[in-house]
């Protein structure tokens, strides 16, 4: 099992970096090629969600992501934002659409509050093909 960890200040520009790293690790882990577009989208949605949660409450703490290559490919995204302020209609559309996308494209999805403090963890997992794992 190998884990790549990434931490970034809550800026939208860094979400693309997280997507690129996440897809690279997924490819190496053996996630089938025909699922990589969904992996890319899901990682982007989960990281954008975390960035938005931090920004809405003015929190500058880093967003943390872990990409774990094991029996499954597991992505965890942690934010540390508390309850959100009122959001605009367009933001609400994005929040609703993002939730719909994540639920539809990630079969193994868990969203839970962090123990011992404000924030949430999004955990997503995909099966891997052992025969296609690289460098083993």
């Amino acid at each position: 099992m190998a884990t790549v960890r990434l931490e970034f200040t809550p800026e939208p520009a860094h979400v693309r970096t997280a997507r690129l790293v996440g897809v690279a690790v997924a490819r190496r882990a053996g996630v089938p090629d025909d699922q990589l577009d969904e992996v890319r989208l899901a990682i982007g949605e989960a990281c954008a969600r975390a960035v938005a949660r931090h920004q809405r409450v003015g929190l500058r703490d880093v967003v943390a992501v872990a990409f774990t290559d094991g029996d499954r490919y597991v992505v965890q995204v942690w934010d540390h934002a508390g309850d959100e302020e009122q959001i605009t209609d367009e933001e609400q559309i994005t929040v609703d659409v993002s939730a719909s996308l994540l639920q539809a494209i990630v079969k193994d999805l868990q969203v839970r509050p962090l123990e011992g403090g404000p924030g949430t963890e999004v955990q997503m997992a995909w099966p891997v093909r052992r025969a296609s794992r690289l460098g083993r």
Binding site: R40, L41, G44, E45, E90, I93, T94, V97, S98, L101
Partner: peptide, 13 residues
């Protein structure tokens, strides 16, 4: 070649 929920929200807006 890539669009996320923010892009979809902008189109609806």
């Amino acid at each position: 070649d890539f669009m996320d929920s923010t892009g979809l929200g902008v189109l609806v807006g």
